[in-house]
Write a protein that binds this DNA or RNA. Structure first.
Length: 421
RNA sequence: GCGGAAUUGGUGAAGUGGUUAACACGCCGGAUUGUGGCUCCGGUAUGCAUGGGUUCGAUCCCCAUAUUUCGCCCCA
């Protein structure tokens, strides 16, 4: 048997309906916030990701799907959404638009060559938002609240918003320097990973779970001592705005994010439930004021987040959130002989085009099985097409709830159903 | 990239080194000569992930591979 590639999944049945529901919610809320849908290619020039995500991140160093196409071009399947959106923003000169800032959202499959586990796949669906051309913490607050409100709207309650600031370039590089200096004194007591992080990306040490309880770890320098006044002011303004929006959040200095392009505001929304797998970050994002320039555009600031839809599905299951799924139909049409079948075919089209969800039998099964089918479809009405009735231009219509049936003229069917549903 | 667990039909699964692989659900048909949801009866695996090996003989023992799953790393 041919099976799906590792780390992929087939979306079908109830899960598919759930996913569609999530998508409906996302689309609806983005409309209200007036974010514009954007779709970019599944694959990009490798350069797009290598120049943006950064070479200290595993995503680019060992998790991308890279290949050469037949024209010998270096191609990479997108591992995340921001870089492609920014590339498109630059290429289409959206910085020159009459309406600013540019507020975009995407909802696409992403690809990372990783070892799959709970909440982590090789092909996965990320929804995300990017706002380009606004440096005000006003937009930071809006973006964070948008992510937060999506979860609230979906019915998730057991979540927490963590925020932090990485400061501007000056603050961040001062802080990095201080961290390296400080942590260098404790290398012998450090876990192996942290020793690597010290060389590659010292900020990430703050996110370590192994060393977190050690005294030297707790006494490490904090970012707020290194923020210059502008960065500090911006961060407190953001908190003010979040308070105003009534968003519950926690300032968490260990949120540093893995991608190189972040600066100032960073945030994560995590699932708190203990039973949830270790992949508990449902959404994450932050400000990236250097990215547009890094990718060759005019210096433009940006703010955004991404969320993993499969993880949200897991979270909804974990919290046992009831999702409104319509799994019933309006009408089931039963028949037996060929003449009746033709009428059934005609009627099914007629009803569907008039807005009714309609099913019938395709397998020439016994009338008894057709009634069973109608029941399984949870149909509100069952039509029994009968040769004798056809002569009088009518059919038998059964109300499956009241279990009553009556003859209805074929021409009156639509009106009748409109009135009764 | 590293480590642990799993892999029997449409589904949940039991089971044994040796003729026809239990049971249940589901599905199809019949009892009910054109009417469901209950009941009863009957039917329903090209054979136990794939490839090797051990053996007179393997679904059951060994090895490898694949996939699933859980964790580390990383990240949504």
């Amino acid at each position: 048997m041919i099976t799906k590639p590792k780390g992929t999944y087939d979306l079908l049945g109830k899960e598919a309906k759930k996913m569609q529901y999530i998508n409906d919610v996302l689309t609806a809320i983005c409309e209200k916030y007036n974010y514009e849908f954007i779709r970019t290619p599944v694959f990009e020039s490798s350069e797009v990701f290598h120049r943006s995500v950064g070479n200290t991140s595993d995503i680019v160093t060992k998790e991308t799907y890279d290949f050469k196409d037949r024209g010998d071009r270096d191609i990479t399947l997108r591992p995340e959404g921001t870089a492609g959106v920014v590339r498109s923003y630059i290429e289409n000169k959206l910085y020159g638009r009459d309406i600013q800032p540019v507020k975009l959202y995407y909802n696409e499959m992403m690809y990372r060559y990783e070892r799959p586990q709970a909440g982590r796949l090789r092909e996965f669906n990320q929804f995300g938002v990017e706002v380009l051309g606004c440096d005000d913490p006003f937009i930071d607050a809006e973006v964070i609240s948008l992510a937060y409100n999506i979860f609230k709207l979906l019915g998730l309650t057991n979540i927490r918003v963590n925020i932090n600031t990485l400061g501007d370039d000056e603050s961040r590089s001062d802080y990095k320097k201080a961290l390296v200096e400080y942590f260098s004194n404790y290398t012998n007591d450090m876990c192996e990973d942290c020793q690597n992080r010290l060389k590659k990306n010292p900020l990430r040490i703050l996110d370590c779970k192994v060393d977190a309880s050690k005294t030297w770890f707790k006494n490490a320098p904090k970012i707020d001592q290194y923020l210059n006044s502008d960065s500090a002011k911006r961060f407190s303004k953001l908190q003010e705005y979040l308070n105003l929006l009534d968003i519950e959040y926690v300032v968490n200095p260990s949120i540093v994010r893995g991608l190189d392009y972040y600066s100032h505001t960073v945030f994560e929304i995590e699932m708190l439930s203990k039973n949830f797998g270790s992949q508990n970050v449902l959404a994450a994002g932050g400000r990236y004021n250097n990215l547009v320039k890094m990718l060759g555009g005019p210096s433009t600031c940006g703010m955004g987040f991404a969320m993993g839809l499969e993880r949200i599905m897991l979270a909804l299951d974990e919290e046992e959130v009831k999702i409104p799924i319509n799994d019933s139909i309006d009408v089931y049409i039963g028949y037996v002989n060929e003449e009746e079948k033709e009428t059934a075919l005609y009627l099914s089209q007629e009803l569907r085009l008039n807005g009714f969800i309609c099913e019938t039998d395709y397998l020439n099964r016994s009338l008894k099985s057709q009634f069973k089918s109608a029941d399984r479809f949870k149909s509100k009405y069952t039509i029994i097409v009968n040769s004798n009735d056809i002569k009088n231009y009518e059919v038998t219509l059964k109300d499956n709830k009241l279990k009553e049936e009556e003859k209805v003229k074929i021409n009156d069917l639509v009106d009748y159903l409109d009135m009764h549903m």
